[in-house]
């Protein structure tokens, strides 16, 4: 498990290093994730250590974003008068974009792109 965690941290650092050196506008975590997937595809297998470390971290993803989420309760008054716009944008915008995604993707899959099933 710890060994797997070490691998994750190394890939993250590698991603961060690439991001800093080549000024890529994508976060180090995402670069690391892409590198991780590519490496596994090359290797063609995954160790138990890595599998359990990644499962452990993914299951507490919510815990990791909580410190940032809580901030909204403490900066609320800074945006007085904007709440209607914010709420409408979040609710309406998300509703429309969920519908668009589902409709578009099921359309494209049906048109013959998906040979999976």
């Amino acid at each position: 498990m710890l060994r797997g965690f070490l691998v994750l941290v190394l890939f993250f650092l590698l991603g961060e290093a690439l991001q800093k050196v080549f000024l890529i506008p994508v976060s180090g975590g995402v670069l690391g994730m892409m590198l991780m997937t590519l490496t596994l595809m090359f290797k063609g297998g995954i160790s138990d250590d890595l599998a359990s470390a990644s499962q452990g971290l993914i299951s507490v993803l919510v815990l990791l974003i909580m410190p940032g989420v809580v901030g909204v309760f403490f900066t609320a008054d800074q945006f007085a008068g904007q709440w209607l716009a914010v709420a409408a944008a979040l609710l309406g915008g998300t509703f429309l974009s969920v519908l668009s995604t589902l409709w578009l993707m099921s359309r494209v899959v049906r048109l013959g792109g998906g040979k999976g099933e």
């Binding site: 994750l8 941290v9 997937t37 595809m41 599998a51 971290l57 990791l64 974003i65 410190p67």
Partner: peptide, 28 residues
């Protein structure tokens, strides 16, 4: 919050494990 980075990397693992599904649907 520091752990968010390695956790993002960890998402690459289910991605790899489901690669056959993704290959089948790459066009859509």
């Amino acid at each position: 919050t520091v752990l968010l980075g390695p956790a993002t990397v960890a998402l690459g693992i289910p991605l790899y494990q489901q690669m056959h599904h993704i290959r089948a649907l790459w066009r859509p």
